[in-house]
Every structure is written in structure tokens, then in C-alpha cells.
Design a protein around this nucleic acid. Structure first.
Lengths: 328, 328
DNA sequence: TTGAAAGCGCTAACAG
DNA sequence: CTGTTAGCGCTTTCAA
């Protein structure tokens, strides 16, 4: 930076100012500095900047796993949005463990991040304390309904379950079933199951049960669950799945054992994954706005950093969309 | 750190040493320092550390998109492995653009990363120059066959295509087709197509064509491609798909139009995605070792950082696996 | 709008 | 194995 300043005939602090707030520097100086940066191929050292400013241009994003398409979508969107403002995404995977999440938060704080982004509303006591004391913007994504540490962007998962149940009932179904995977770890899937069962059972003449498996969701588990469901509850006429991977397995299993969808069995999923519209039959599902969550989250972070006077909202409900297709 | 040193009755540099190389500090000092860190709830400032060391504990990982399950797998694995050594993953998405990748590399270099990880072997000239001059370990993942900037971990995609063709021919197929999506951007899918066509056409009595679509791969595109393929080449008896999303669409479309798999048509995919084994019929596919690529990459980076004397290899061929299932 | 000065909190020789 | 010393390359008042 000193070399750039020398070449541009200004002081280092003017170069620094130019880099951070270009508008505060005169056109003449700006031109000279830009030329010097270019000629010298100057690359700012963000470590030094972060040290001096006691805050870095890194945003720590912690999700259960980026292998999960939902979180991948949000992470990808956030990186794209934050990258435009030259903010770096630092990624961490909690693998659905609060202990691991806590470690990641500790590591993250060492970087003096511009913001910390978590998934969901349940965290260890230490995590909450670290973050509250940390004097850093905190965002919790993908879940609404509890008390956020700072800001939250997401939707109500009980509503998702409730919407699914209502939809199936409206289609004339009476014997409902929820098919869930890894419910012990996936709090949000559990909330969807709760909402589903509650709404279904509150409806006169409708019954609802749940069948689950502890392994992570995939189509093979979905197929197993459907087989087990048919065995346990031969008279079911509709299943709601904790996500579309499970629903895909249900579709394949029904094909194999000759259960007609939707005539004999209605199926609704969650996720609207890339294959859902192309299934045979096309899968009715509920689409969570993974990308919207990402853009809204990025916007809140940017607002905070730029302290745009106007108080930023604390909670954003992105809602979700029911997509009715052939399977119901 | 000075507070910790004072409380532990040692000098700050001993604390620093303890933090970086615990084994180099006496047991007595270690105990005292650990106690002090705990009591004071000391959180190291990695920005300061990075500045002083002229190198940070951040690893920049740039992939086309983490929405793609292949790269998500590698990113997740790398984060887990590097996280154990307290290295942070900084994520960037090139969206298959060399220009965007170049921007991300420039941003990454500002952080003085411990290593830069890219996807594939083709990059802009500037990217290559920046990285070669950057005096930073560079890894290129998921592709072998060219001249790596520094180190590479992956496999040969032409071999994948060739393996698929050979498999189909061995199953007695004669009229082969490659179904591809987004080949103009996805160099590795193009390499697989090339290998497939070459091997098929070199085989006596076997013909091979290609049908493609410019949109990103998903099941709907796969269904469209299959329909188009049947129209153009009514006598095909086998299709290889650029990935399993396409293959899934093919399976559904064949169900709809009544084409028997594998009797009338053999299908092979690429990816072994989470649904592939559970399809109806189960999908024959080629599994790329996304997790192995991640662990090997992490190992190379760690070796470099710790300068484990022994020269680290420059290129690692992880190979891939053919999984024969019902669809062929 | 610009510049001088004073660090930010740590690392890395080096000597002991 | 431990301590001394001299910065790393920026940002940020504050004054001009």
C-alpha cells in the first residue's frame, strides 16, 4: 500500500480510504491511485486490514451439511450475494451436532467475522452465550418459532406439516401417514411431522400415524418406509414424506408392488428437489425458498455492516409454496 | 495473549508457541497456559496471527457450484478434514465461468490462504499466473489429464466414458447413445462423452451418437433427451447419461412411453447419487469418489503446510467404480 | 479531502 | 525450552 501511495503521490491513508470508501477521495487522487494499483498489481492484505479494523470481511456460515440440497442452495446464494460486496463465506458443517456447531462457532469467532450465520434455532448454551457476547451480527436460518439470538430468516415448519395434511384431506384422504427419516437429529423435519399429525388428528374422520427410520433420508429409506407402512397400516390412503428423497423412494416402491399413485395412495413430499417435477407420477411437494433465505440473509448482513440507519427487521418469514402435481 | 502470558507466568511468545506447537512447550508451562486460557476465556485472533505469519489458516476452495452433489461431497469432506487441524474453508462458486473463478482467486489471495483449491484443469491465463506467482500450494480437483499448476487429485473422465461404452458393448449392445446436458460449460462431462464415443466407435459393429441439451442437468432434461433420442435414433439399444439426474429422467420417461429397461434399452449413468440404487429398475452407474478426492486433497494440503520433508506427490489418480445394477 | 501518528495482536528469528 | 525484539500491512482518529 505504501508503494501504491508513493507512485500515486498520496499518503497511504488516502489509498486506504480509497479502497474502503472511494467516494470520499477526490477524482484526481482516485485516478492516480487506480493507475498505481493497476501498474503495481497491488493485492490488499485483508489479514492486515482485519487486524487493524478489528473486524474482517469474512462471514461464517454454519450448516448441518452442504450435502443437503436445501442448505447447499442457501450457501450458494449467500456466497454469490456476499461475494458481490467482497465478503468471504467461511463454511462449517455441524453434522447436526450442537457440540460440533459450538466448536465451529469458536473457530469462527477467531476470525472476527462480519457476521455469523447458523442453521435453526437450537444451539448449545455456550454457543448462544459466545454469540451474544461476541458483539457480532448473528443470523439463524431455515427455522422460525423460537427466540432468535439476533436475527432470523426462515419459515414455520409446523405450518408445512399442517399444509400437507390439509391438502391431503381436501383431496378426500382419511388415513394419513407421515414418513420420516432421521427425525432424532433433524429438528425441522420433526416439526413438520408434528404439524402434520396435529392438523390431521384435529380433523373429524381422519386418522394419522407416523413411521420413521433413524438413517439419513434417501430413496432407499423411502422405499423401506413405504413397505413397512403398508404392512403396519394396510388401509392408508395418503403419505406425507419428510422430504422428496423419501417420496422418490415411495414412488419407486409403489411401482414395484403395484400401488397406484394417486388413485390408491396420495403422496406429498417436501423440498421440490430437482427431480420432483419429472417423477412418474410428478410429485406434489412443498417448496421451501432456499434461495430466498440466502438472499434475505445476505441483505440483512449487508444492512448491518453498512449500518443503514433504518433498523433492520429481526425476523423474516419467507413462507413456502405448495406445488400440486400428479401424485395427489 | 499478553494477559494469558502474565497469568501463566511465561512470556507471550511461549503462549504463542504453545498454541501453534504444543509439544515444544514443557508440561509445566503448558498446564499453566491452558489454565490461564481457560480462566480468561482467551480467543486467539487469527487475523493478527495471519498477518504476522504472512499466511493464514484459511483454505480457499473454489467449485463450480456447491448445488452440484459431486462438489458438495468434496467440499463437505474437505471442511471436515481441514477443520480437525483448525483450518477454515473459504468457499467460492465459479458457476462454470473462468472469469468468475479469476475474481474469486484474486479475492482469495487477499487472505493469504494456506492453499487454494480449484476444480478442473482449465483456468484463465491470469488465474494460472496469479497462482504460480502466488507462492501458495494449489490443488486442482476432479480432473486429470492436463498439466496441473501445482498438485492435482481426480480421475480421467475419458476413462469414465470409455468404461461405460465397454460395459454396454459387453452386455451385447450395438447402437449406443450419449445423453448430455450443459456440455458447453461442463468440460468434464464433455470429456466423458468424448471417451464414450471414441471407444464405442472403435468397436467393430457398434455405432454411437450423441444427443444433448444446453440446460443444466436434471431429470426433466433427461426425459426430454430420451424422447428426442428415440425420435432421432429409433433403433438405439443403450444410453449413457452425462450424470444420474439425466438417467433418472430417462427411467421415468421410459416408464411413461413403455420402453423396457434393460430388455429394450440399457441405461448407465454417472455419479451414483443418493437415489440411484433405489430406482426402478436400479441404475447402473459409475461412482466418482467425491469423498476420497476431498480427503486426499486435505491430506496433501496438510502435508504441504507441515512440510513433512518427504516430497508430496503432485498427481493422485483416485479412479472410479462401475456399479452394475438392473438397468443394464 | 488529505496526512501523520499510533497501534491492532500476533509470529519468528535469534540468543540464551 | 523460554524470552527478547522487531515487525507483519493495514485502519483510524485527529488535525490540518
Amino acid at each position: 500500500m505504501m508503494d501504491v501511495a508513493e507512485r500515486a503521490q498520496v499518503s497511504p491513508s488516502t489509498v486506504s480510504l480509497y479502497l474502503r470508501k472511494p467516494d470520499a477521495v477526490s477524482a484526481t487522487a482516485s485516478r492516480a491511485i487506480a493507475e498505481a494499483i493497476d501498474a503495481l498489481k497491488y493485492v490488499p492484505n485483508l489479514m492486515a486490514g482485519g487486524l487493524a479494523a478489528a473486524s474482517s470481511r469474512a462471514v461464517s456460515v454454519i450448516v448441518p451439511s452442504v450435502r443437503n440440497a436445501f442448505f447447499a442452495e442457501t450457501v450458494a446464494t449467500m456466497q454469490a450475494e456476499l461475494g458481490k460486496e467482497r465478503l468471504q463465506v467461511m463454511l462449517g458443517h455441524s453434522e447436526y451436532s450442537e457440540r460440533e456447531e459450538e466448536n465451529l462457532v469458536k473457530m469462527a469467532l477467531s476470525w472476527k467475522p462480519a457476521a455469523v450465520v447458523l442453521t435453526g434455532l437450537s444451539h448449545s448454551a455456550t454457543t448462544r452465550r459466545l454469540l451474544k457476547d461476541g458483539n457480532v451480527p448473528v443470523l439463524e436460518l431455515w427455522e422460525l418459532g423460537g427466540e432468535p439470538i439476533d436475527m432470523a430468516v426462515g419459515f414455520y415448519h409446523e405450518q408445512v406439516g399442517s399444509t400437507a395434511a390439509t391438502h391431503l384431506v381436501q383431496r378426500g384422504r382419511k388415513r394419513l401417514l407421515f414418513l420420516g427419516a432421521r427425525l432424532q437429529e433433524d429438528r425441522r423435519a420433526t416439526l413438520r411431522a408434528d404439524g402434520f399429525l396435529k392438523t390431521a388428528r384435529e380433523t373429524a374422520g381422519v386418522s394419522a400415524e407416523i413411521v420413521q427410520h433413524p438413517a439419513p433420508a434417501n430413496a432407499a429409506i423411502g422405499a423401506m418406509l413405504l413397505a413397512e407402512a403398508i404392512r403396519k397400516y394396510p388401509d392408508i390412503d395418503a403419505v406425507a414424506c419428510s422430504n422428496d428423497h423419501i417420496a422418490l423412494g415411495v414412488i419407486f416402491e409403489c411401482q414395484r408392488i403395484g400401488v397406484q399413485i394417486p388413485e390408491r395412495l396420495s403422496v406429498i413430499g417436501f423440498g421440490d428437489l430437482s427431480f420432483s417435477a419429472a417423477c412418474n407420477p410428478a410429485l406434489t411437494t412443498i417448496r421451501p425458498p432456499g434461495d430466498l433465505i440466502g438472499t434475505e440473509a445476505a441483505r440483512l448482513i449487508l444492512d448491518r455492516i453498512n449500518e443503514t440507519g433504518r433498523a433492520t427487521p429481526t425476523v423474516i418469514d419467507t413462507r413456502f409454496t405448495l406445488l400440486q402435481r400428479q401424485s395427489s
